[in-house]
Design a protein around this nucleic acid. Structure first.
Lengths: 142, 142
DNA sequence: ATCAAAGCCGATGAAACTACTCGGGATTGG
DNA sequence: CCAATCCCGAGTAGTTTCATCGGCTTTGAT
């Protein structure tokens, strides 16, 4: 249950772009230096995010990357699903065929409940929340 | 964000042992046939669980495995942590040194919140709950 | 028009991890 | 004794991760 480096890099890059809104396009080099991410690897990662429509690019001299939407319209959940694949803990949650035991499998229920919980948390946090430092720890009661 | 096969196998095996409480020791072969898990691989997995004190073994003829504690004293969280490693989404949650940005890193807060949520869910479900089929989906309100 | 800055892209590669298999040794009940 | 069974370390094929490399394309500035 660990996040991949790719995913962490990608989220750091998106946070960097969120901080840079209004400052024009940011180059791979600049982002990689600020976020301490290998330049060529970041290029790959940000390419994925571009193809998914979360960042826009400008080619040529003075080019770079910018967020394609406002920071409050990009959630950590979106980034996770793009960079880590869908948040599903076992195949049988989505694809019932993948589970031979199908309906009578009790762990299926566990995974479903866990998946719900994870999605709820990550979809509730946007880049804007991170900028605002508005992320509260989980409330114990209520 | 996907569970390993090892972990699923391990949990299926533990569920099997929970169902078999009172029926004497269960052999690797019997468990593997019921749970559709490769025999030799299961042997490896259940060895880990034995060394962690969750199952007891009896060697020799008529030997096999039994739960070392009552099903309501074994949570999915324990199994996850043993079979998947600690549920921590980024190293910096446990080991602050691992994060160069340390305190001023906003994604750190996100990962902490996510880790809390995951642990809360998986630690709240025991093998007994699975036996009783008592696992409810996450409550939307309240 | 030229040129350097920058993004774009496919191939490659090392290292780690996963999901096993294999072979043999150690115990124990009958 | 011997067959059943657990115990254990080694090996292995395949996949994934985390990159690196080289070259191509686009574009702004001069």
């Amino acid at each position: 249950m660990k996040l991949s480096t790719r995913c962490r890099y990608g989220i750091h890059a998106m946070y960097d772009l969120a901080q840079s809104v209004g400052n024009g396009p940011q180059t791979i080099r600049a982002i990689s230096e600020r976020q301490l991410v290998p330049e060529q690897y970041l290029e790959q990662i940000i390419g994925v995010l571009r193809r998914e429509g979360l960042v826009n690019s400008m080619r040529g001299a003075q080019g770079g990357y910018m967020l394609a939407r406002a920071p409050n319209e990009i959630s950590i959940g979106q980034l996770l699903r793009i960079l880590e694949g869908p948040v599903l803990v076992a195949d049988c949650i989505e694809d019932a065929e993948a589970c031979i035991r199908s309906s009578q499998c009790p762990s299926r229920i566990v995974w479903g409940r866990l998946t719900d919980c994870i999605n709820k948390v990550v979809d509730s946090i946007t880049l804007q929340d991170m900028l605002d430092d508005q992320i509260q720890p989980v409330d114990e009661k209520g």
